[in-house]
Design a protein around this nucleic acid. Sequence first.
DNA 1: AATGAAATCGACCAGCA
DNA 2: TGCTGGTCGATTTCATT
Lengths: 176, 176
Amino acid sequence: MSESYPDEWEGPDDLDETDLRLLECVDEDFDVSLKELSAELGLSNSAIHYRLNKLKEAGVIDGVTADVDPTSLGLNMVAITEVSVVHEPGYSEHVGTDLADIDGVEQLYYTMGDVDFVAISRVQNRSQMNRLIEKMVAVEGVDETSSRFVMDELKTAPRTVATLSEGMRENLVEDE
Amino acid sequence: MSESYPDEWEGPDDLDETDLRLLECVDEDFDVSLKELSAELGLSNSAIHYRLNKLKEAGVIDGVTADVDPTSLGLNMVAITEVSVVHEPGYSEHVGTDLADIDGVEQLYYTMGDVDFVAISRVQNRSQMNRLIEKMVAVEGVDETSSRFVMDELKTAPRTVATLSEGMRENLVEDE
DNA sequence: AATGAAATCGACCAGCA
DNA sequence: TGCTGGTCGATTTCATT
């Protein structure tokens, strides 16, 4: 994020419309054969393969992962926790990594404003959640925490490409 | 989540230690050959394949996806927004789906407490963010919103299995 | 539930537009 | 650079234990 580009700048990589459509497919489901993709995009198998490799090497695709359903592992309890730290310089980085290392913390954001960190955690039961919050409070530099329980996850995994607006899309393919 | 199980209940599926180790591998990186997995786990290729299929059919693995790096698409701006709704019965479901449908909203949680929804959104620039917030406010039933900008994402994609604690693991394999 | 062999599919290379 | 076609190696499937 240490870029000197203007606010309306779009992205470093030169993607064309085909790349974007390919990303839309595999961002949703990579468990498809090259055949299906080539049928969808009107290209040969090797062409798809070639483009996928290019996207991986460029870091646009930075991994392929199996999405594990948390509820099938009994991880039914989700909480969103706001963490504020004592305001002494240099603390935040340390606090951040300590918080991120706590088992059950799935996401951790460092934010502007009165609250300093927002964590999203997932556990199996109340006692685990209690222990998790205790660990957060015990991190040196943490001032106070405030948690909310999640009753429903209406939208979860970051399906980055699927949530692109038309405008965002245009910014990517227009000026490559 | 409409289960009548006690709080300490662990999970519906009968997983053994091998399944869990396999999940740990592919949850991190599915772009590996069966050879590597069979070497790691001491099983034949076909056995790995058999277990992977079983996990997919059981819904433990509910998909294989390519992880697209948002920054390579110029999606550098992330916000966490708290949304409260006017308290009239039956509003919440409608508001939830409307909010989830807004382009750029990657995650949406329905929570207990004074705030009703928490959204995590990702866009390319300030004007897109402004429009996104406007759309949220325009949703019928939304009372007010409060947004915080994310300065750093210390932990992002829900690597569910990777963040399991020892206790969570034990709950899964012990009593299958 | 796991194995090995057979059929199928994907990865890579050389060459071409 | 982006793509094609063919080859080899990998994966999927299936009969068998």
